[in-house]
Write a protein that binds this DNA or RNA. Structure first.
Lengths: 204, 204
DNA sequence: CCTACTTTTGACCAATTGGTTAAACTGTTT
DNA sequence: AAACAGTTTAACCAATTGGTCAAAAGTAGG
């Protein structure tokens, strides 16, 4: 079957492209470098994906869906807010720690081409409104204090994403550039963020 | 006096370089584009700054110092923690709102060349330890609850920086891509963040 | 006005880069 | 075994890009 070979190469290319694009960005990445990383000829890149732009788009879509957490599970379950939050925070930090440079990469490329973003969001199934609704309900139930639910969601995302996105800076400033010490800090932070948020919003 | 003209051109170049580098990043920026933006000949760029790399370094240093907030004022004053916090948050949000793409730019380029960062931090006079100390004192005084002061500082920075760095995404997700609506939100957020943090750390 | 200097420019260059093409290779079908 | 399809490659190309250089333009002092 020829498809086996085809799929294999295509995957290899996409995987290599992810590595290189995340490392160098769209402009910094070289087609030759991606080819080398994939262990194939450069012309083959153009055979599967016509141009650098198209390869980048395919890569970006795949990466973008990665940083979109399974927010929905947080909405659907009928666990108390504490449990939902804990699940979401731990889960998301784990995902990001596997790709610490993903957030910055996404933000940078988004800012370079904001129009491309619209289609992505629609096709990604991202529905932040659902989460906002959930928070609204909690406020009406009286479990958390009154506030703009969008603020709450954005604050939670901030507390999770930023410390990972700024890893090199924080690592140097606070952790003596020691990866282990930084990683431990982030691991502990799962609980810290949960506490920080709950202390702030819960009506005791 | 020849220096007047010289300084003038050098400033024009640096200013143009900031604009273009922030917009396109190191790799995406073109020397020709910077020259156009500055209204001068391309060769003149190399006359003042030998290479693209050196022009970038000069630009980056100047930009990096911008996002380093006057943390120190927060440490020195003997105001109560609420006031210090309010001052810091409002001040920093104002600075960042003038350059919403600065944080992402810095993070991206840092991640591309982490070694360059070390020298910068030393020469920038950035001393986060001082802030950490201050928080430690507040904890010992019993005004805020016990926690890792580094966590607190990082959380505050997260709440301030991330919502601005992710402007294009948030603007699309929550504010119907309407700049005014987004700006109002950030303006309100000054108070929100302060509340959010105080609720979380203050011992009532 | 002339000389010495710095500043600015247009023309040019070598290297890099995304992309193309025609040929070679592989596996499948008849 | 030959014809056919999709896959892979090496060689090549046109355009871009950072950088150079010699000459021109501007400036100041004698």
């Amino acid at each position: 079957m020829t498809n086996i070979k085809k799929d294999n190469t295509e995957e290899k290319i996409l995987s290599a492209a992810q590595t290189v694009f995340i490392r160098k960005g769209m402009d910094g990445a070289r087609m030759q470098e991606i080819a080398d990383e994939a262990g194939i000829n450069k012309a083959l890149l153009h055979y599967y994906f016509r141009s650098k732009q198209q390869l980048f788009n395919a890569t970006f879509e795949s990466l973008f869906s990665k940083i979109i957490p399974n927010v929905m599970r947080m909405v659907q379950s009928d666990q108390p807010i504490e449990v939902k939050l804990e699940f979401f925070i731990e889960n998301y930090i784990d995902v990001l720690m596997k790709n610490p440079f993903l957030p910055t990469f996404i933000l940078k490329e988004i800012h370079q081409d904001p129009e491309f973003l619209e289609g992505l969001i629609r096709s990604s199934g991202l529905e932040p409104q659902k989460v906002v609704e959930m928070f609204k309900n909690e406020i009406e139930k009286g479990t958390i204090r009154t506030m703009d639910p969008r603020d709450l969601l954005i604050s939670i995302l901030s507390l999770i994403i930023f410390p990972i996105a700024s890893k090199p800076l924080l690592s140097l400033l606070f952790f003596d550039d020691d990866p282990k010490s930084y990683n431990e800090f982030i691991e502990k932070r799962k609980a810290t963020v949960k506490e920080f948020v709950l202390y702030s919003i819960l009506i005791k």
